[in-house]
Design a protein around this nucleic acid. Structure first.
Lengths: 207, 207
DNA sequence: GTCTATAGCTAGATAGAC
DNA sequence: GTCTATCTAGCTATAGAC
C-alpha cells in the first residue's frame, strides 16, 4: 500500500466503486473491462494494470461487499430501536435498493452468476452469505430474549434468520417482475407471525 | 407445422431439450449456439436454421418451461393426498432438481439472467411466474378450506403461496453454497406453522 | 500508470453452395 | 436441412513504447 501513489489508489478505488455498481446492475458476467474503462475514461490495459485478471477485481468486489454488509448492519444496529425495527430497516433498505435504484444486492448478484464464478469467489461468497445470516441470527436471538419476537421453541435463531433472508431474497427476485407490492406483502406476512401480541383483527404491519 | 419434415421437428425438439438442460445448468447467457451444435453434432448455422435468433430459442424455452410446470403440477395434483402433501412433493422435487441433478429450475435460471433478457422473454417469464403462484395459491385455497392448512385470517391464499415460493427459491439459491440442510430446515420451519394441531414438543416435519 | 496495438478466442448471425 | 466460410463485435489478456 505504501508503495502505491495516491493516484493509483484513487483509480483502483474508482474501479471498485464503478465495478460494484455494475455488479449490482448487471451481474459479474454482465460487465466488462471495456465498461469500466469507458466509465473512468481510461483504456482497457489500464484497468488490467490495477486488476490483472477479472477474478482479482471480483475478489476485491467481494471485499467491497463485506464492507457494504458490515456498514449496513452497523447502521441498522445503531438506529434500530429493537429487533423488529432492525429487521424492518433491513427490508426497507433492500426494497429501496431494488425498486428505487434498480439494483440487486451484491450477494444476490453473485449468487445469480454462481455457475460462472471462479472457485475463490465462490468460497468468498459462501463466507459473505454466512456473515449475513449471522447478523440476522443475532437480531433474532436478541429479539427472542427480549420478548420483542416470538417463535416456536423448536426453532433456533439461526433457522429463523435463514428463513427470513431466503424469503427476502427470493421475494426480491420475483418482485422485480411481479411488482414491489408482492415483496412487501410476503415479508409483512412473514414478520407478522413473529411479532408478539398479534391482534387478529388488526391490519398488517407496514414496512 | 404440417410443412415441416419429421427430421426438422426432431432436430428442433432436440435443440429445445438440450437448450432446456443447458438453461438449467448454466443460465440463458451461459450457453451458446456453439454448445448446442456440439451437443447435437451439427453446425452452428444449422441451429440458426431452426431458431434464427437466440431470443427465438429463448421463447421456445419459455414454452418448454410452461409445459414443464404444468406437467409437474399435474403430477403433484394427481399423487398428492392433500394440500400439505402436494407442497411437500413440490419441495422434494425442487430439492432433487437442485442437489441431485445440480440444476436450477428454469424459472430461477431465467430470473438470474433477467437483466440480459430481451423484453419478450421478460414478459413471458412474468406470466410463467404468475402461473406458478396460481397453482400454489390453489393448493393453499384447497388446504385452508379443507382444514389441512391453517393461517391468519388476514392472509390470502395468494399471499401465502407467494411467501412459500419466494422462500423456496431464495433457499435454493443460498443452499447451493451453504448446503442442502439449510434449504430443508428453512422450508420445514415455514411449512410447520401452517400445519394444524401443531404439537410443540414434537420434532419437526420432514420433507 | 497510462497508452496503442494486437493477440486469441468466442459470441450471435449471414451468404451461398449442395 | 445442413454445410463451409465468413462477418462483426465483443471478451479477457499481453507486449512494449512513453
Amino acid at each position: 500500500m505504501t508503495t502505491k501513489s495516491a493516484n493509483a489508489r484513487q483509480t483502483r478505488q474508482q474501479l471498485i466503486d464503478v465495478g460494484a455498481d455494475l455488479l449490482c446492475r448487471r451481474g459479474y458476467t454482465g460487465f466488462s473491462y471495456q465498461d469500466l474503462a469507458r466509465e473512468l475514461g481510461i483504456s482497457k490495459p489500464s484497468v488490467h494494470h490495477h486488476f490483472a485478471q477479472k477474478a482479482d477485481l471480483g475478489l476485491a468486489l467481494c471485499d467491497w461487499t463485506e464492507q457494504w454488509l458490515r456498514d449496513g448492519f452497523a447502521h441498522f444496529d445503531q438506529h434500530g430501536h429493537n429487533a423488529p425495527d432492525k429487521l424492518q430497516r433491513y427490508l426497507r433498505a433492500a426494497a429501496k435498493h431494488t425498486f428505487n435504484e434498480h439494483k440487486q444486492c451484491p450477494l444476490s448478484a453473485l449468487h445469480s452468476d454462481l455457475a460462472q464464478l471462479p472457485d475463490a469467489m465462490r468460497a468468498r461468497l459462501s463466507d459473505l452469505s454466512r456473515l449475513e445470516v449471522d447478523w440476522v441470527a443475532a437480531v433474532f436471538r436478541q429479539g427472542l430474549a427480549d420478548g420483542e419476537l416470538q417463535a416456536p421453541a423448536t426453532a433456533s435463531a439461526q433457522e429463523l434468520a435463514q428463513l427470513f433472508i431466503f424469503a427476502c431474497k427470493g421475494a426480491l427476485y420475483y418482485a422485480r417482475l411481479l411488482g414491489r407490492e408482492h415483496f412487501e406483502q410476503s415479508m409483512s406476512l412473514l414478520l407478522q407471525q413473529w411479532l408478539p401480541d398479534a391482534q387478529p383483527a388488526q391490519s398488517r404491519t407496514t414496512l
